[in-house]
Amino acid sequence: MTRPRSPLGKDLIGLEELSAHQIRTILDTAEPFKEISERRIKKVPVLRGNTIVNLFMEPSTRTRVSFEFAEKRLGADTVNIASSGSSVQKGETLVDTARNLEAMRIDMVVIRHPSSGAARFLAERIPSNVINAGDGSHEHPTQALLDILTIRDHRPELEGLKVCIVGDILHSRVARSNIFGLLKLGGEVGVCGPMTLLPPGLESLGVKVFRRIEEAIEWADVLNVLRLQLERMQGGFVPSLREYNRFYGVTTPRLKRARQNILVLHPGPMNRGVEIDSDVADGPQSVILRQVTNGVAVRMAVLYLLAGGSPERAEAAKQGQGEVA
């Protein structure tokens, strides 16, 4: 059975491959889905009969749970496969995993994998829709989409908006997806972090690089503060957490130099007192919990669109009128 054509194509691998129009379509489609999560009975039958596998080959709680809620609230049947105890740990290759999933006739795969390019690798080998839930240091498109949706909730005009991503850009798929997405929507993107954690050639992508956090904060309308992975210390990229906080931490004294209505985002999970101080995370500029709520809506929108749902009918779909497949 062929599925209806999706406005996104077969898969969602990254924001680099999407047009501005496609990104806006996802964001706009997420709007009506926000409301479902506010209901007492949080379920519509949009994806009834669809089977979705959440294939998480790297530890994740937040993203996996968010996808699972999105899938269940749309009425899909879901199976979670985590790397520990799975055949993946027994040496099965990604291509064999893909073939086995395909043999079970599933409709969609949500994949998280430690290697960059793994989501595309899977997408090229199976006819099911593939959603990238984070591949290595490459992209994490739904995270960036929920970040952008959250920004848009507070700053409807993204054109010319200055967003600075702070922290470990080198290893961050969240940073890459945000950079690609925001630039396509006309935003300005800056990054700030220790030089050891900035990849080369960012300027040629159109990104402004800040060496000092103070300058970044003065420049930005929005700060997206990345988690500092603790293993970066073993890698020698930063000498200590204390030093990181001292020179790159987003703290209340530093925010005093920011414009008054600056927004602070964090994709989580936070290291309080390292990349972000608690009084900032819990303060008035923080929209961190809004991100989490929006995450479910964005993922519902992506699932709905990939399954062939039309953006115009999302409102009707959430009223329970219309299954897509």
Binding site: E16, G117, G136, S137, H138, R176, P199, P200, S204, L205
Partner: peptide, 15 residues
């Protein structure tokens, strides 16, 4: 190779 392509693709580069 370490360069713009590796930066975009999220792959570790050899400079």
């Amino acid at each position: 190779n370490e360069g713009v392509v590796s930066a975009r693709m999220g792959l570790r580069g050899k400079p």
